[in-house]
């Protein structure tokens, strides 16, 4: 299945990313609520890349298992990585002046969430949102 990678270097890049996710949502027939959840989660991860790693990229694709369709987003950066991953996944934890809800909130918004990060090794976050939202 075709996939698409967009670089993330400035706030405006999210506009392009959002419209591409919308296209994938239309292709899979995802409803408005699930589409909004996925796009909001994506917005959190794009902001994290811009805030903490300066730049990165996102790969967007449609995935399907047993006729079940969903959208998979992979956010990759080569920034400083996350020191305390367990803390970063807690509500309210922020090393900047943020609300500390980006990572845990994104995890609650989508069907599947995986994060890989280590100091000096950058960060990879993978999201999958199934069409039915479960």
């Amino acid at each position: 299945m075709s996939n698409h990678t967009i670089p993330i270097v400035r706030e405006q890049d999210f506009i392009l990313i959002r419209s591409h996710i919308q296209e994938l949502c239309a292709e899979t027939g995802m409803n408005l609520i699930n589409q909004t959840k996925l796009i909001t989660a994506a917005s959190e991860l794009v902001r994290n890349i811009l805030n903490y790693a300066k730049s990165g990229k996102v790969m967007m694709e449609i995935v399907s298992i047993n006729a079940r369709q969903g959208i998979k987003l992979t956010f990759t950066d080569e920034g400083p990585g996350i020191e305390n991953l367990q803390a970063a996944m807690q509500d309210g934890y922020s090393t900047s002046s943020g609300m500390g809800l980006g990572l845990p909130g994104a995890k609650r918004l989508v069907s599947e969430f995986a994060i890989q990060s280590a100091p000096g090794k950058g960060t990879i976050v993978t999201l999958i949102h199934w069409k039915d939202g479960h």
């Binding site: 959002r18 909001t40 917005s43 959190e44 943020g98 809800l101 980006g102």
Partner: peptide
């Protein structure tokens, strides 16, 4: 179009 945690803040 999108209200994430930063917009809310």
């Amino acid at each position: 179009p999108t209200v994430d945690s930063m917009v809310a803040q």
